[in-house]
Design a protein around this nucleic acid. Structure first.
Lengths: 130, 130
DNA sequence: ATATTATTGCAACAATGTTGCAATTGATTT
DNA sequence: AAATCAATTGCAACATTGTTGCAATAATAT
């Protein structure tokens, strides 16, 4: 089996996630550590973090791909079934951990994962409207 | 105001949507009409169809972008709030028009659009498992 | 038939993501 | 502490997807 290693680059990426309240794109992350490592390395670190369930991948309605740290509390297998909010104005994506969709689906469909993204105007941006 | 025109390419794209039971990517559409028009034209036609609410855009968990014809029944303004199912095996995306998520979101978020995509194994593929 | 303007083709560009391979480096063992 | 093994990285090159400007074309209204 593959063992996972703690490298300088990976640590840097995790630190960035720790500081951020919103989801981050590959580009946003890379810009913060371009002296430390290569563009490709960031892609590979993100892949690994997603595989290890440390980070989850979010795709919004435009097709923009972002990543956010998982806040799961010791569940064994977990589905990222909470909502994500994508603001049309500031373009930030935020996890709404408490918002979970309920739905009824025909039982011949086997659901493994869920993507529930809402887009609109976030509280911050609707305040600054005057 | 801009008036919209019926061109050969646009008609061809609409015919393809008419025939297909699943959502289609730009590439899948272009492959079927590459003798008729340019790659860029297909992008522009899709943009227009989305703007005119004739087609809706779907982004699945991988970031794959597809389009499907709208089946709305004379609603004035409509949100595509039905679910989409993305099969991990055959990679097809299907609209589940009857599956609509219900959810509760803090009222300081203003929701304009919804993306609700489920991924897993579709009925077709779970039958052919043996 | 003509005029208007939406639409198209082309070429060029930009952004995003992937791959192969040799070099490096983290963790483990001796 | 040095040697070993394999995970990780850098680089270069490529693939895919989507965008833009502009001149040429074609769909509609008059």
């Amino acid at each position: 089996m593959k063992t996972t290693r703690n490298t300088t680059a990976k640590t840097a990426v995790l630190e960035i996630f720790g500081k951020s309240k919103t989801a981050l794109s590959h580009t946003e992350i890379y810009k913060q550590i371009e002296e430390i490592c290569d563009r490709v390395t960031v892609y590979r670190i993100l892949d690994r973090l997603v595989n290890d369930d440390i980070v989850h991948k979010i795709v919004d309605l435009d097709g923009t791909v972002k990543y956010a740290k998982c806040h799961h509390h010791a569940q064994r297998v977990h589905i990222h079934n909470h909502a994500h909010f994508s603001c049309e104005k500031c373009l930030e994506i935020t996890c709404l951990e408490s918002v979970k969709p309920s739905y009824i689906i025909p039982h011949n469909y086997k659901v493994n994962d869920i993507n529930f993204t809402l887009s609109g105007i976030c509280p911050n941006c609707s305040n600054s409207n005057i």
